[in-house]
Amino acid sequence: MKLDESDLAEQVIDFFNKLPFNKFMGISLIRIGKGSAEMMVDYNNNLIGDSESKVIHGGVVTTLLDAACGAAVMSAGMPKVPTATIDLRIDYMRSAKPGKMILAKANCFRITSSVAFVKADATDGVDEVPVASASGAFTSPI
């Protein structure tokens, strides 16, 4: 279900894209649906985690996945009610290719009155195997 054209989606996208840390990292929300979100981060020399390999730092991928999960959770609940991360686990499957943007797709697969459960994958478009995946629990925005 795509809500890209709706006013609500635009408001949520605007909200996330204006968050200081997302702006600082160059992370942007590109799509939001009911319980799902896509966010991306452009490759940038500031984000390098190893100057020898030029691979982006794991913390950047963590931020992207956390942000995408948070957006997915928010869109699954009441509009504009904030949520907070309770727990987030990231598995790093492979190094992201230097120079490539990273795209994260998050899906809130279960939401109760107290907890929202969410999973997300991050890809760099080079290989079908995701760069990293995340699984988290968030406070419920219901």
């Binding site: 968050l19 840390f21 950047v60």
Partner: peptide
């Protein structure tokens, strides 16, 4: 620094900023 904010309402640090900090320190 203001750039670390992830929640404008309560001026809280971004979960990603906290995660990045922890991971950096661990490495």
């Amino acid at each position: 620094k203001p750039e670390l904010i992830g929640n404008g309402f309560i001026k809280a640090l971004h979960g990603g900023a906290i995660g990045s900090f922890l991971e950096t320190v661990a490495i």
